[in-house]
Design a protein around this nucleic acid. Structure first.
Lengths: 129, 129
DNA sequence: AAAAAATATGCAACTTAGTTGCAATTTTAA
DNA sequence: TTAAAATTGCAACTAAGTTGCATATTTTTT
């Protein structure tokens, strides 16, 4: 992945990609660091790594929760349409609703050109209902 | 409005409500302060005022742009479904797309209960196309 | 394999949206 | 008009994310 993207194949990038591949939820810098545990990196490095992965399209900046951006592999998404994300207002957990397919909103009128559509849902998750 | 909400009718709340009534876009604390100009209030006061108006349902916390929450009168929205918001990636302006009606996503499966749905669009606005 | 070029990393210091505690002020109700 | 209740401003704080720079690592070149 990194080679085809013409990025240096460093320990940091590999480790962070692995973390993101092992989860099914968008993660923040802090969550990534926690999952790397003892072998984590400086937060600046994590941010810059995420930035570089974003730029080559391997990652998506998905949403902000508690003032922190959450990142996810670009896997199941097209450039313009990502699946909806559901965040539980009770326990705070986030779920990717990959099975819902929302229609892309058509350009409504007056020459709006839509490049990206983001759908967020809030409510109660199965375990909190 | 304030009386029926059982809130003290203070200069701050009136002024901030007026600003929000005079615009058609969600505004951040900083944008509100700028529009109040010389007669603005401490940012803490603005945040607390917005908080109190939120609590009684007069306002909605709509989205975060450039790490800042933007607020809007609850006018055209139901509790659970707000109109989509379009932000231009070129000039940064935001438009409320009140004329689009997106269907509320049905609870997909497994007992997710959806309380709020938020749709954001990104792209080019008419003047930037 | 060694050296040079290109890029990544860590640290410290910084920026900025938003929050908290507290004393002083304003609003409302009695 | 006075007391109770709530709001305001100030200063100090929190935390996510950024910037500059010296050092370390990866890749390319020789």
């Amino acid at each position: 992945m990194l080679k085809t993207a013409k990025l240096y194949c460093t320990k940091g990038r590999v480790a962070i990609l692995k973390v993101l591949m092992k989860t099914d939820k968008p993660l923040s810098q802090e969550q990534i660091a926690r999952r790397l545990g003892k072998k984590s990196f400086d937060k600046v490095t994590i941010y810059r790594t995420l930035e570089s992965l974003l730029k080559v399209g391997l990652l998506h900046k998905v949403f902000i929760d508690k003032r922190a951006w959450h990142f996810e592999l670009a896997d199941n998404c097209t450039e313009s349409q990502c699946h909806p994300h559901f965040t539980c207002t009770h326990c705070g957990s986030t779920h990717c609703l990959t099975e819902i397919s929302l229609p892309m909103a058509g350009s409504p009128h007056k020459g709006f050109v839509i490049h990206r559509q983001q759908v967020r849902l809030e409510g109660l998750c199965p375990t909190c209902t």
